[in-house]
């Protein structure tokens, strides 16, 4: 990735990462209408289209925040293909709706394919992590949530009415337990090597 040249549209990624309202506005003005139109033309409603757009933008935000998301293709194509494929997956999931469009992978642009692949893999991982988090015990969920929401572990200890040493230990244990759940899931095995 790094040897490839960064695309000038990287500022959209940076703008999303920084929650820059004017950049998000620009994305909504320039690129979103096309996506909405496409989804509406393919058995989707306006609301469903809006959901797809928001979910894709959130994924890009998360990827930009957690990894270094470096755009090597135009944002327009990248964003559109992500939304399009996401909608295709939605349609496949709810099989009542007939899939009417084909060849979603016609693009020969390698950078674009690579970018979309990376983001989709990232998104799948996020979904898996989220799912596994839900399977943790209530106590663990609470300790983890508080550890990341609260400024200091001392405060977390006060909130939970336990000692500082205990809460620190518990945080590492719960995170460890979550990694265990993730590691043991079948889906992770297939994702790991991507």
């Amino acid at each position: 990735m790094s040897e490839k040249q960064l695309h000038e549209d990287q500022f959209y990624i940076t703008g999303l990462k920084e929650n820059n309202t004017s950049v998000i506005q620009a994305i909504y003005k320039k690129f979103v209408p096309k996506v909405i139109q496409h989804i509406k033309n393919n058995n989707g409603s306006e609301a469903e289209a809006q959901d797809v757009v928001q979910e894709v933008l959130i994924t890009i935000y998360q990827q930009a925040t957690e990894k270094k998301l470096q755009l090597t293709c135009p944002f327009d194509a990248y964003f559109f293909l992500l939304c399009k494929r996401k909608w295709l997956n939605e349609l496949k999931k709810s099989s009542q709706k007939e899939v009417t469009f084909l060849n979603e992978n016609v693009s020969k642009d390698e950078s674009l394919q690579e970018m979309v692949f990376q983001t989709e893999t990232f998104s799948e991982k996020q979904a898996l992590f989220d799912l596994m988090f839900q399977q943790l015990g209530e106590k663990c969920k609470e300790v983890l949530r508080l550890s990341f929401v609260t400024k200091s572990m001392e405060e977390v200890a006060v909130k939970l009415g336990v000692t500082y040493a205990y809460v620190r230990k518990k945080k590492s244990l719960c995170t460890g337990q979550l990694t265990q759940l993730i590691r043991e899931s079948v889906h992770y095995q297939s994702l790991k090597n991507k």
Binding site: L16, N19, I58, Y61, Q62, T65, E66, K125, Q126, F129, D130, F133, L144, R145, S147, F148, V149, T175, G176, L178, T179, I182
Partner: peptide, 19 residues
């Protein structure tokens, strides 16, 4: 562990909620 840590951090961060 590192990935999970990062995931949790983003999941619960105020910035993500604001975004």
């Amino acid at each position: 562990y590192q990935q999970t840590h990062q995931f949790l951090k983003t999941k619960f961060s105020g910035e993500t909620a604001a975004f």
